[in-house]
Design a protein around this nucleic acid. Sequence first.
DNA 1: TAGGCCATGTAACCGGTTACATGATTAG
DNA 2: CTAATCATGTAACCGGTTACATGGCCTA
Lengths: 182, 182
Amino acid sequence: MNTQTLILAILNFENASGYEIKKQSSEGAFSYFVDISYGSIYPTLAKLEADGLVIGRSETQNGRPDKKVFSITAKGRAEFIKTLMSPPAIDKFKSEFLLVAMCADLTSPEIITKAIDKRIGEMEELLKVIGGLRSDCDHPATQWITSYGLHVKGADLEFLKNNRDSLIAMAGQAVKLDEAAE
Amino acid sequence: MNTQTLILAILNFENASGYEIKKQSSEGAFSYFVDISYGSIYPTLAKLEADGLVIGRSETQNGRPDKKVFSITAKGRAEFIKTLMSPPAIDKFKSEFLLVAMCADLTSPEIITKAIDKRIGEMEELLKVIGGLRSDCDHPATQWITSYGLHVKGADLEFLKNNRDSLIAMAGQAVKLDEAAE
DNA sequence: TAGGCCATGTAACCGGTTACATGATTAG
DNA sequence: CTAATCATGTAACCGGTTACATGGCCTA
């Protein structure tokens, strides 16, 4: 999922400036499965405009810097729908936590406790974000994906809470075996 | 999670050649939360050896190409444990499917049906892989993360099956609204 | 008056993938 | 005889992030 498609998707829902696109991607409606940086947003927006897929209009604001608000063109929408048509690639997923958990016996109970409690906190935070998205949007497809998120992440949090202690109990076992062998 | 840490993690469980590391990361015990390519494995292995974190020994095989089997050194293990100690970064997650689902109304029921059925198939496949990992490994921490995976991905599949038809029903609604307006 | 938010943009860098080169052996 | 598997490695490329530059307004 490249920056271009993401920007087109966001602009398909509403007009936005580069700054607002960044917000959408890291705090707003798309934040739960996406994140892009300014360093890729602005150059992509320029390229998109050169290709005629979006158009930008400068808006002067009082008390604030001017902003350039972009909207998707018919050509842009056609291009976006074309990419939606091709079968979506499999989810990309990388988890440092799973690696740490898998190696729990090599570290200490303190480290594992911190790692899992951090994760529980993040998961609760994410659940709040998705819940918020769900309640202030009546678009059916958005409701569907937020229900999906709530269901999956809810199950995730449930497992973490129920099995927190058993993971902590595994921590440092490799070290203890070393000591016993001495 | 950089290639270096991943390779150290794999070698911490067992000695392996570059080829075998690739297998572990894309089919084996680590495949569910990781994937790396040859183009990053071999150069990283060379760098790791130059730094004294791993050592490689050439093994001649009959009927097959020679292979260079690497093992982690004490220095490498220390380095690996050090990285395990720092609080794990939040999971990285990107989903093209969620984007497509969120824009279901812009496409057709056929496209959505294909996308969701593809996903259901992939999820069932993943569940099988994790189940296999779980049954042929008695390492407690590995069992913990595979139970976790089974729980979360099980909930995922459940939602997909229960809500497949409702998503398909949303497909093409934007197009229909367009037509109605004509 | 310091820090945070609004707002746009660029250049350097980097971590990784893709594609290619090479070649023997074995299974269908 | 063809395709797949084993096995290692390089070079070009690419999509992105990080850090920097700039600057005014508002809040604590």
